[in-house]
Write a protein that binds this DNA or RNA. Structure first.
Lengths: 151, 151
DNA sequence: ACTGAAACAACACAACC
DNA sequence: GGTTGTGTTGTTTCAGT
């Protein structure tokens, strides 16, 4: 994981459709070498997958909310329960007042309410607090670059 | 935006590297027709881009936090200020107690503290509350499917 | 709008440095 | 680990329906 690998990752985050020739040129490598580097980045899990960034509103999901979940038990093994709700796009164990923070996309506030109901049905859950997003300022499908972290 | 388009979007979210031939086969279309459909989905913005999903920890970003930001003024025009901090991967205007919710990735808690310091330096900001993620249960780079929303 | 085929470009593998 | 070359595969365009 050197500076060339990081440059490749940055390029591929911006546009994963470009050819290995273009990719190589961007980082100062031949087509074959760029290809081999990317293959290894995939193999080692640095690139988890390459995916289409789909506009949620194109699918009718106009409501975005973050929900903190209170519980009466340890929630570290509840990933399957939350993942079973397709409207939940992220779930995290957090430090602080609540146990779990989830990110939810729905078509309507009615549907959001239904998701809250289903979260309440999960064993150990005894409370939720939803925060509705009025306007997304931006969502980068990206990890930070140029922020000085070491790989 | 019919059921075939939705099937294409789902396929491409799972794996954007597959060939148009495979894509067409998955949705019951010829190579050329699949290609034309995907071209239009890109053109109309349903597919914003195709991107590599990079593991943040591979880049040394092991700390994930959500920060609510309090302010003394309307924050609807502050997207550039927040976007200028590369560690901020999402920013939203929210309803509720705080004005803005941001998602932050850093290499360390020290670096997180530095981000908080720079958020405080934004005009109108008069408070932050950080919630540290102890363990991400899952993050889907996906919009929900099969959740009953209309396109 | 989809099909099928032909021209073109990119990928994947190999031999070598 | 890199480059350059070559057969194979996928992409892209277009006439026909």
């Amino acid at each position: 994981m050197d500076h060339i690998d990081r440059a490749l990752l940055e390029q591929l985050q911006q546009d994963a459709t470009q050819s290995y020739a273009a990719l190589g040129q961007a980082v100062g490598l031949s087509t074959g070498a760029a290809h081999e580097r990317v293959r290894k980045l995939r193999e080692h899990g640095a690139i988890r997958r390459t995916t289409a960034d789909v506009d949620p509103s194109a699918l009718g999901y106009g409501v975005l909310a973050y929900v903190t979940v209170d519980s009466t038990r340890w929630m570290g093994d509840t990933a399957p329960e939350f993942a079973a709700l397709p409207e939940i796009v992220e779930a995290h164990i957090i430090a602080g007042n609540a146990s779990v923070l989830v990110k939810v996309r729905t078509a309507s506030t009615e549907q959001l309410q239904d998701v809250l109901r289903r979260i309440h049905a999960i064993d150990g859950v005894n409370g939720t607090r939803a925060t509705i997003v009025l306007e997304p300022l931006f969502e980068r499908p990206a990890s930070p670059y140029g922020a000085g972290a070491a790989g």
